[in-house]
């Protein structure tokens, strides 16, 4: 197996783990809160999904820099490193990293503090936007990375790609917050 093939496979595995983990994480979260609370097992699954996403992220970044080494050492004349698609991908990966850090900083401690407790409390409702917002940013960013990686021949300026990505993120945040709020209200009326 050549280094190139090895890197392509690693890059695909990293993206699949990241996008898959982020999808599972959102799915587990919305499924878990259907009964109005998150139990210990469900929280454990969320943490497991987060570990899968981090593993995907690390594989993605290292294989990405593997390509950099390969191009730099073997074929620098290709000049691929000033491709707007590459810089768009790097920007999305940066957002994924920052969003992941915010999740560990704010979201996981919040969810941990609510394990086996009703999510309809005003304390959780007030702090819930960060949960829905980071969830939306995560899943949209991972799918953006997947699409950018898979879309051969995409030839758009950096500003267009990032503009579309920011538009998708903004829409996703609005939808996730409306949907999350709707679920909480539904749980509340059920409990009344």
């Amino acid at each position: 197996m050549s280094w190139y093939i090895f890197l392509v496979i690693s890059h695909i595995i990293g993206t699949v783990l990241g996008a898959g983990g982020a999808t599972m994480s959102d799915f587990i979260f919305f499924k878990s809160i259907e009964d109005g609370k998150i139990n210990r097992t469900e929280f454990g699954f969320l943490k497991m999904a987060s570990a899968v996403v981090w593993a995907g992220f690390i594989i993605l970044v290292f294989s990405g820099f593997g390509f950099l080494i390969l191009y730099r050492v073997v074929a620098p004349e290709l000049g691929l490193l000033y491709d707007p698609k590459l810089w768009a991908k790097l920007s999305v990966v940066g957002v994924i990293l920052l969003n992941g850090l915010v999740m560990h900083w704010k979201v996981f401690p919040l969810l941990k503090s609510r394990v086996d407790k009703p999510l309809t409390s005003s304390e959780f409702i007030n702090r819930s936007p960060i949960v829905f917002t980071t969830g939306a940013i995560s899943i949209i960013s991972w799918y953006t990375a997947l699409i950018l990686g898979g879309w051969r021949g995409l030839d758009l300026p950096y500003s267009t790609i990032i503009g579309a990505y920011l538009l998708a993120i903004s829409g996703g945040i609005v939808v996730a917050n409306i949907f999350g709020r709707y679920l909480i209200e539904k749980m509340r009326s059920k409990n009344r």
Binding site: L68, P76, E77
Partner: peptide
């Protein structure tokens, strides 16, 4: 560290253009 890595990509890109 992240900034230096990105600058590394930028420098390598310029090398590619110059070859």
């Amino acid at each position: 560290g992240v900034a230096i890595a990105l600058m590394g990509v930028g420098v390598s890109g310029a090398v590619g253009q110059g070859v």
